[in-house]
Each structure stands twice: as structure tokens, then as C-alpha cells.
Design a protein around this nucleic acid. Structure first.
Lengths: 210, 210, 210, 210
DNA sequence: GATGAATGAGGATTCATTCAT
DNA sequence: TATGAATGAATCCTCATTCAT
């Protein structure tokens, strides 16, 4: 009897999504054909359909991967106990995103951008992305609250709005990185630190930035 | 005699891109078919092909429109003589984007997100978007330089990196707006102001935020 | 402008159903492929789909044709004013069916048998066939009632049950004709007349059969 | 030692055809997939192919079953020594068919109708059905001859044609039963008796009909 | 023997574009 | 000039059957 362990099944699904990733990076979700994925995966049509019931399922798996790669890498950092400030957290995150983008298996952040576009008309994709983005916001919000409590943000600041700005910095990094290919996580974090130090008396700036 | 032609031609092209916009908002670039656009425009296939030589041309026109609507609305503000700070400029911009998104003809920011995705694999789209994004960055950079010169940003700040952060705040607003539909330009600007006031002694905060 | 009269449209649909008929007679509903119909019709795939939105639609059109050819040819005879008895009506009908079967365009009675089979699992086909069969029964029933009233059938006879028997004689003819290809409408009607004369005293038989 | 085999083999084949019957009643011959049959039988693909070498074989087995269930149930009655008249024999047969249709394992008469349709294009199915139908006819013919000899049918009647009419009454019952689901064997036989009594003087009808 | 994953040709349908009228 | 029917390659997916384990 053909011994097909769960691991084997998972491995095959992985093979397929990896092949699909390569195709999608070349062609995008819509121009990628099943024939492309089949060819790239080295499997037969029937085999691929044995692991995914439709092209849509493969795309959704990629969307999950890109988000579970992009935003949930975010969550790990935001949920860590280490008590970081806004700039340090952003620094961490942007570095994580940059590593993700450099993954030799393929740049999942590019898939993420495709997913944003797709989420605007496909409720299934939307249902994957929206909760994740809300989760990220919530984590930023708790950091913002902490920063306000410590007097590192103005006491009158609305932590929810601060969270939206911080959340927005990530798509901002990803889009510029993907389009202009000149983004550097270090520099982005530094640019942000400069803003944080906007009104700080020159004498104190060294301390704040450190 | 072939006078009415040009105006007429422009009007027709407008009709077609507007029809295409409605389709693209419903279906996205790729799921929108020429048949959809033809039906929505009320013209015949032949007529549409008289004004655009291919579907790609129509999509590129929409991309232009969304960027010439999104980012060049940005340019207007950034190029204006009024000597605004970072927060005021962002406030202005985000409001402009929000107005664009509320346009009864259709939300061009959503098309913009589709365009980012498309730019990642279609050089033609990339060639439209990349220069515009660079232009926006350049404008932010000159503002940043001014702010540094005036001591409103740390003297050691790199205006280019600050510009990238400021540029990033716009995609960040647009994506959150499109996906979560809860963005408020006022709040976003306020959130940003809170960051600017991060290290400001409490006594001075009122002045800075105003 | 391409002048496409309604007649042209009807003619095209006819071409397609006729092509489909030829295919279905060769291969049956299910083994007939769209490629078969397209080839047989001499049109392109797109053209065929311009006139029928799916293979199912073409099959349903054929079902209609076969029933509107088989059973509604029946109705014409049953509804005619001519005051015929059971045997004469059956004679007429079986001849009509035989003519239909000999149609050089293709034997619609064979399609009818396929339709019966299909009606057993496809509600759409069922919804076409069932009412027609009920209508035929109703017509036979009114003839039966007339015959009872005239004393040509026993006064205690149930006209509804007689109608079901008469209705049953037609599928009986069609199936035998299609399977054994030895049916002769004349003989079938004669066989029926023999039954009608079953208990008639020999002396009267000539009169009854005439 | 390879003893259990044969019985076991038969039992397995039965399981498979029963599973196939359930599938075919739901989906018809062509829409039933091997995967359906495999699932429904609870066996593995390999196992099913161990007992039947192809889907065609399973379908042919079902065709045999439906005919060996429908028409050969007919044969039993027609071949029995009991010296029955036309009406009594029909009564018997229609009841037998009705019982077959009510079989909790699945209505084989519905499969029979599918088989008729199939016989029209598949020589293998035709080769199963045609001889059986001819056999039934022959049996009816011998009854008809007997009835003519006894003066219960006109002396000039053609027993072959009478046989075709009687043979036709069965598909007539089956189709109406399957399509309209309102057939009652008792009533059908009564309807037929009414026809047999068509020309019988009222005084004699009681005797004939009884 | 038994299993069920794999095969891959084949099927229905779509759609950007053209061109006869 | 405008029309919209026609084109046909390309797309997603299915399914009878095999064979390594």
C-alpha cells in the first residue's frame, strides 16, 4: 500500500505553493496559469489537483503564506516581551520584512502587494487580510499606549491613531521596496527616528535616538 | 472640418476610461473583460477599439489616471509655495487622497493599489509608477531639508530617509483605507503629529502640535 | 453595420441544433463533445457559444425538438376535430412517429429515448418531458371518455387508465423501432385493432375493424 | 485452497454493482465516475479494478442486471405453464415490473431506460437488449397464437403484430412510471382489459373482464 | 492481494481582437 | 464611420486507469 504520510502530503503542498510562488512572481496571480504551476512543480495536472482543488485554493494558500510571512512575522516581534519603543520595534519589523523579501525561495512581500489588490474585489482574500491587519494594528496600539504611559508620547495622543500610522509604515516600506528596489531597513528606521526627535532639544537628541 | 474630432475624441476616451474604472473597481484589471467595458460604456466593440487599440491601453490609461489622480494630487500640494511643515503637508495630502477615494466616479486609490501590484510584473506599468513615486519622494525630501535647516528636525537627520518614511505614509493610508474602510485623514495626521511631538517637553507640546 | 436579422439568428440556431442532432445520434448526449458540434456545424467555438450559452442549452433545445417533434406531433392529431376512434387515432400517431423517425435530418425519436433517460436525473429535462406526457394522456383520456360515452368501450371503464395504456403504446412503438428496427406503423395499429376486437363476435368483426 | 475465492468474488462483484446502481440512479451512466463507484462501494480503486476491468464492464453488468431483472422477470411469467390470457399475463408482468421498481436496493427499471438510450449507440449494450426484447416478443407471440386458436382474438389477427403491441405496453408502463411516478399496475391492467372488452356486447362484459 | 497517488489526454468554456457589411 | 458576429487559441479542470509500495 502506498505509504503516504502526512509529511509527504505537506511536502507536496509545499512543492506546489513554491512552484506557484515562482510563477506568481513572474506573472502575477492572474497571468499565472495552472499549466505554468504544473510545469514549474514538475507534477502532473491530476497530481496538483489532488492537493489543491482549484487554482483559487493555490492562490489563497500563497496569500496566506505571504501574510503569514509578512504580517505574522510582525506579530512575533510585537508580541515579544522585550520592551521596545516605537523606533526599535519598527527597526525590527522592517528588517524582518527585508529578510522576507530576500528569501531565496521568492519575495513574499511582492505576493503581499498582489494580495492587497486582490483583497479589494475578492472577499475570500479580504477575509484573510483584514483580520491580520487589524491584529497588527492592535499590537501597535498596545505599544503606543505603553509609550504614552511612559511619557514618551504626548499624553493627549490617541494610541489608535498612532497605531494606524505605525501600521501604515509597513506597506509604505514594502511598496517602495518593490517598486524602486532601493529601500534599506536601517535607513527607514533612521528616518523614522528623526521624526521622533523632531521637537527634541538638540542637547537631548543623542539620548533619544540611542 | 475635422475639428469636433479632437474634443469629441477626448470625450469618448473619457467615457471609456470611466466605464473601465467602474468595471475595474468591481472586477480588477484582469477579470475585467473587454466585453464588460464595452457593455458598461454603451459603445460598440468597434467603437471602443477606435479610441484604444487594446485592453492594455485602457488599463494603462486607468493607471495614469489613478496615479495622476493620487500622486500628482500629491505633487500639487508639495509644490505649492505655502511653507508648510511635515504634519501640515501630510494632513493636506491625506485629505486629498481621501477626497479622491470618495469621488463619485469611482475610487481611484483602489485602482492605484491594483497598479502597484501590476507594476511588479509589467514594465509598462512600472515605468509609469516608479518615476512618479520618485518625484513624490524628491518633493518630500526638499521639505525635509527645509525642516532640518530650520531646526525642526535633528540636524543629523538624513532628509532622503525622512522622505522615504513620509512617502511611505501614503500607501500606508491607502491600503488601510481600502482594506478596513475605517481611515480618517484627520486622525491619521493627528497620529503623525503625536509622533513628531514624541520627545518634546510637555510644556512645549501645545505650540508644536498647533 | 452587420445586419443580423432575427431570421439569421434563428437559422444559425437551427444549423447548430441540426449539427448537434447528427452528433447525438452518433454518440449520445454525453459522448457528444462541444468540439464535435462545433466541427459538425462548421462554425467556430465562439460562434456556437454566441447562440447557445452552454452544451446543456443545446441538449435542452434538442430535447425540446424531439418532444415538440414526437409528442406535439401527437397533440396535433389528438386535438384535431376529426372524430376518430382509438384505433384510428393510434394509427395516425404511429404513422406520424414513423415519419419523424425517417426524417432525413435525423431520427428525433432516438433523441426522445435519450431524453427519457436524461429526465430521470436532470430536473430540467424532466420539466420539459413530464408536462408533455401529461398533456398527451389528457388528450387520450378525452377520447376514451368519448368512446365510453358512445358504448365503444365498456361503461365501467376508467378513461384515465385507458389513457395511460394508449399513452404507453407510443414509447412501446418507439423503443422497439429504435432497438429492433423492424416496426411498421400499419402492423402496430393492426395488432391493436385485433385486441379491440378481442371479444367481438366473429360476425361483427369486419365492421369494427373498418 | 483458492476456494473461498469464487463466492467471495461474486459477493464483491455484487457489492460493486450495487454501489454502481446507487450512483447511476443519482447520476446516470455517464455522469457516474469511477471515483463515485469506488467511494460508494467502500473499496479501493485497485480493488474495484480487480473485479471489473473497466467502467464499461460495470455498466454492462448493470445493464444485464436491469434487463435480467426487467425482461427476464417477464420471461418467467410468460414461460410459466399456467395458461393465462393476455390481460392476466399483462397484469402479472406489470406487477412484477412494479415490484422491481420498488426494490429497496434501487429501481432497476430506471437503469433499464438508460440502457435503451445507450443501446442506440453502443453496440455492446444493443447486443444485450435486442435479443432479450426479441425473446419477450416471441413469448407474447405464442400467447397470441394460443388466444387466436381459442377464438379469444380474431382469427384474422397477426400474432406477431399483437405481440409487438403487448411488448410495447411494458416500456409504456416503465416510462410513465419513471417520469410521472403515478403508475399503478392494477389500473394499467384494468385499462387494458377495458380495451379487450371494446366490442363485447354489454351482456357479456362481466364474463370477459373477469 | 490491496492501496490510492499519479497520470495526462480530453472536455467545456472564455475573450481580445478583427473585419465584412 | 460604426457595428457586433465571428474567430480560435488558451484556460481551468476531470477522470478512467495504472502501478509502486
Amino acid at each position: 500500500m502506498p505509504r503516504v504520510s502526512q509529511e509527504h502530503k505537506d511536502a507536496r503542498r509545499r512543492e506546489i505553493t513554491e512552484a506557484a510562488l515562482r510563477c506568481v512572481l513572474r506573472e502575477g496571480f492572474h497571468k499565472t496559469t495552472m499549466a505554468d504551476i504544473i510545469r514549474e512543480s514538475g507534477l502532473s495536472a491530476g497530481a496538483v489537483y489532488g492537493y489543491f482543488s482549484s487554482k483559487t485554493e493555490i492562490i489563497l494558500a500563497l496569500v496566506q503564506l505571504s501574510i503569514g510571512g509578512t504580517l505574522s512575522a510582525v506579530q512575533q516581534r510585537l508580541e515579544s516581551d522585550v520592551d521596545l519603543g516605537l523606533a526599535e520595534t519598527l527597526d525590527d519589523l522592517v528588517h524582518a520584512i527585508d529578510r522576507l523579501a530576500r528569501d531565496p525561495e521568492g519575495d513574499l512581500t511582492v505576493v503581499g502587494v498582489q494580495a492587497w489588490a486582490e483583497a479589494m474585489r475578492d472577499p475570500e482574500v479580504h477575509e484573510i487580510l483584514a483580520p491580520q491587519m487589524r491584529a497588527v494594528r492592535a499590537l501597535w496600539q498596545s505599544i503606543a499606549e505603553r509609550e504614552i504611559a511612559r511619557g514618551r508620547l504626548p499624553s493627549g495622543a490617541d494610541p489608535e491613531q498612532v497605531a494606524r500610522v505605525m501600521t501604515g509604515l509597513m506597506p509604505g516600506f514594502i511598496v517602495q521596496r518593490a517598486l524602486l528596489q532601493d529601500m534599506d531597513p536601517e535607513g527607514y528606521a533612521d528616518g523614522f527616528r528623526a521624526l521622533l526627535s523632531a521637537g527634541v532639544p538638540a542637547a537631548e537628541q543623542g539620548a533619544t535616538a540611542g
